[in-house]
């Protein structure tokens, strides 16, 4: 096992250890926090695929997080009310089964990503950052006005969706679901980046001209990566909706886009377990500093600034450097 792989495993193992430790100590709320970290990390893993490996600085990934969440909320609330989600062009019934909702959330998110990605990838640099933000804002304002599903107030569905053989309301079991999905996404992401496709993608980021010269169209590469990235973030959104049994336009806001980005950078861009470390530290800070001062976000800001200025590799970059010295 290489050094990076050891580090990635250790970070993931730490998260799992926290959850199980908390369960044994009888602190269910800490298990819930670990679950939140795992879900946000999953969103980070998704964004990392576009941002870290594909070099696409999307400032609008909250749109995929939110769409995943809304698909879950809409299906679950229709299942609770016993009404169909739609009757046109064919009838789709509501569902309270995670295994039914997840693929739906990922497909809808991916479709949105095809449209948004194809249009946004016509631009580069700052324009790309801003046009992804603009699409996210559009969907955000749409959700605010969509009264059928709660509008600004958001949509509650009270009962967590079910998973065969598990009690999803038990904190540790829901954590296990989230952690397994996180591990699968990390493994998938590792496979993708090492595949021919992933190598070409990273090459396209580094040197667009050369990739084009070798007969590969960077647009198709980047769009594929963008859509894969979005689908993973959509899955995270679906889980996040289940965690809170609630979705609202806040999931689509540009602050959410910024936060997902923060997890990635805090942990280390382009590192497999970067988002896990980033999300974990973020939630730890929120709980620890939040108790010390209600202005904890200012401290978070300073920390983030220090990381960007002095440790561009993020927390894992620092750890990896530390390990090398040992």
């Amino acid at each position: 096992m290489g050094r990076d792989a050891a580090l990635n495993t250790a970070v993931f193992a730490a998260l799992v250890a926290v959850a199980f430790g908390a369960h044994v100590y009888g602190a269910p709320y800490v298990v819930t926090l670990a679950t939140k970290a795992a879900i946000l990390a999953l969103a980070g893993v998704g964004l990392n695929l576009a941002l870290g490996y594909g070099g696409m600085v999307s400032f609008g990934h909250a749109v995929f997080f939110g769409i995943g969440g809304y698909v879950t909320g809409i299906f679950a609330s229709h299942a609770a009310a016993g009404t169909p989600v739609t009757t046109f062009p064919f009838t789709i019934a509501g569902s309270a089964e995670m295994l039914g909702i997840w693929p739906m959330a990922m497909v809808v998110t991916a479709l949105a990503a095809v449209v948004i990605g194809a249009l946004s990838l016509r631009t580069t640099g700052v324009y790309f950052i801003m046009v992804t933000l603009a699409f996210a804002q559009m969907v955000y304002y749409f959700a605010i006005s969509w009264r059928a599903y709660g509008g600004e107030d958001g949509l509650s569905f009270y009962v967590r969706n079910s998973f065969p053989g598990l009690n999803t309301f038990a904190p540790l079991q829901f954590f296990a679901i989230s952690a397994v999905l996180l591990a699968m996404a990390m493994a998938f992401s590792a496979l993708v980046t090492r595949s021919r496709f992933g190598l070409a993608l990273q090459a396209a980021r580094a040197n667009r001209q050369r990739v084009m010269a070798s007969g590969i169209r960077p647009f198709a590469l980047q769009l594929t990566a963008f859509v894969l990235s979005a689908a993973i973030v959509g899955l995270a959104g679906a889980l996040y909706a289940d965690l809170n049994r609630f979705v609202s336009p806040a999931m689509l806001s540009w602050h959410m886009s910024g936060e997902i980005m923060v997890f990635v950078i805090l942990g280390g861009v382009g590192r497999l377990a970067g988002p896990v470390a980033g999300a974990g530290v973020f939630i730890l800070l929120e709980q620890l500093l939040g108790g010390v001062s209600e202005y904890w976000q200012a401290l978070l800001g300073l920390l983030l600034l220090a990381i960007v200025l002095y440790a561009p590799g993020g927390i894992l970059g620092l750890l990896a450097r530390g390990m090398r010295r040992v």
Partner: peptide
């Protein structure tokens, strides 16, 4: 490994408060 000790310490603290 150090970060894990800190995390476990936090859990213990939270768990004590909860009782």
């Amino acid at each position: 490994m150090k970060s894990r000790h800190i995390l476990l310490g936090t859990i213990a603290a939270v768990a004590l408060g909860a009782g």
